[in-house]
Amino acid sequence: MAKPIDEITWQELGIGAVVTEIGNSVQYKTGSWRSERPVVKKEHCIKCGVCWLFCPDMSIVQTPEGHFTANLEFCKGCGICAKECPVGCITMQGEEA
């Protein structure tokens, strides 16, 4: 959908409220929910991808060097990645800190 979601009126919805654009929820940036962000100590990361596999918000991306870091546009700061990282190289840091 070309328009931002808050400008779309009900008259513009498709018949049967069918949404024809796949995965357009990417417009809604859930990163604003976060109170803590995951910070990766790159030098300790073994590039295993466990954090990526367990993230419920598809918010972990691989960098060109092969490390994994959070995509802060969507990361809600749940802390699962930090908890599950087998080498403990992710720490959660307060957003205001």
Binding site: S25, Y28, P56, M58, F74
Partner: peptide
């Protein structure tokens, strides 16, 4: 990813995972 980010599940929801 066949499920896009921007969904509104609670933080840490293992159901959406």
């Amino acid at each position: 990813e066949y499920m896009a980010p921007g969904h509104r599940a609670c933080q840490g929801c293992a159901e959406v995972l």
